[in-house]
Design a protein around this nucleic acid. Sequence first.
DNA 1: GCGTGCAATCGTTAATCGACGATAGGCAAT
DNA 2: ATTGCCTATCGTCGATTAACGATTGCACGC
Lengths: 117, 117
Amino acid sequence: MESETKPDALCCPPQPTYPTLSTLALEGAEADDELAKLAKAIGHPARVRILRMLSRKEARVCSQIVDELPLAQSTVSEHLRILKDAGLVRSSQDGPRVGYCIDFDGLRRLKALVAII
Amino acid sequence: MESETKPDALCCPPQPTYPTLSTLALEGAEADDELAKLAKAIGHPARVRILRMLSRKEARVCSQIVDELPLAQSTVSEHLRILKDAGLVRSSQDGPRVGYCIDFDGLRRLKALVAII
DNA sequence: GCGTGCAATCGTTAATCGACGATAGGCAAT
DNA sequence: ATTGCCTATCGTCGATTAACGATTGCACGC
């Protein structure tokens, strides 16, 4: 996998200083595919709940998220993987635990793409 | 089906004067489910393309949409049904044809729900 | 009434998703 | 090194999705 490895006091590293966000297209076939991919990632109630949890900073460690949801640990892990693949969530190792947080770049991108529909 | 039936010069009737939009919750389990449902509806490139088409008023009649996409008529009809079920699209009969247009209430709702994540 | 053209529905198939239990891997104490 | 905890991955199963061709159902012109 391509995870981050640097631990952090609370959660993930301070975002790699948003790369090429402003140069990305908001329209066209590529943007359509990108929006579809992001939307698909939040197209499940459990994943919306996880995103909301993280955005309130209510829960960050995987086990906390598992406790909040009526789902098996493996299922939650899979939802987290989907959110991570979509670029909406970041993770960091913190000893034996894994901290999760919002990927604000991805979320901003989603909001921008939705806003201009 | 529960379609609209009143034809209109170009497309759909002038939106039934947005009902309870401002009283709907933006958070909580119901809002999560609602967002997931809306996001799922646009979680496919073809449906994003259709929404964009309609928002530009580039194509409104079903056959036009079919012509713009590399998909069979039945497949496009299914995508339109999904968008309609989600409340993102409206339809109106115009003789033997069917006009489609954005449901601005639904789209606004989607944008609002995404914006506050 | 009768064909014609357009769109929705049906029926099928392959692929993907969602969920789970079981297993494997990694890290920190012991 | 061994143990114990936490998370990711694997394997499986049923449900859902996406796509298509074929069929049905309408609304109009003739």
